[in-house]
Amino acid sequence: MKELALHILDIVENSIRAGSSFVQIAVIENPAEDQLIITISDDGCGMDAKMLEQAIDPFFTTKDVRSVGMGLSLFRQAAERAGGNMRVVSQPGSGTRVEASFKHSHIDRQPLGDMASTITMILLANPRIDLVYRHCLADDEFVFDTRAIRSVLDGVSVTSREVIQFISRMIKERQNLD
């Protein structure tokens, strides 16, 4: 993966397949402590201890079209390569939380990348889920919440072309401020 936003897209695809209806993504950048933390939490079906152990094994997958499952192991590798680590917390019926930390200044840390594209792709593929994306850079906080968007939309879908363009502009505007 060329950027962290692609890992996030991939992990959220796992959440969707686990039956989630609400997904929270947090990107917390703290240059003063040289730290970047990415957290993805969902309310999907969760995993038991055995499955949790298997989930980060690249030769384990829940799918039957192939015998490998690289998503979580690639994300863990990206974190470890940049002086951080990844952990997954999950219980059956209680959703899953994936948390990865990175050394912010590490030369091998991938750039965050195009979060506007990642968020709009998730929504286009899954129009019914609710999504909160929180990006903090030091003390500055940006929050995107589909529930707030829907409350204004009066029945218009978040996947309407005009709404998707609006969401994309909104997140890009934020990224340009960084």
């Binding site: 995107f144 968007i149 309407s160 072309r161 709404v163 609006f166 909104m170 505007e173």
Partner: peptide, 20 residues
Amino acid sequence: MAKLTIAELRKIREQAKRSR
């Protein structure tokens, strides 16, 4: 939510109602 927002989103809602 961020600055680019609610008033503009309301306008967009009206456009979106007319499109696919």
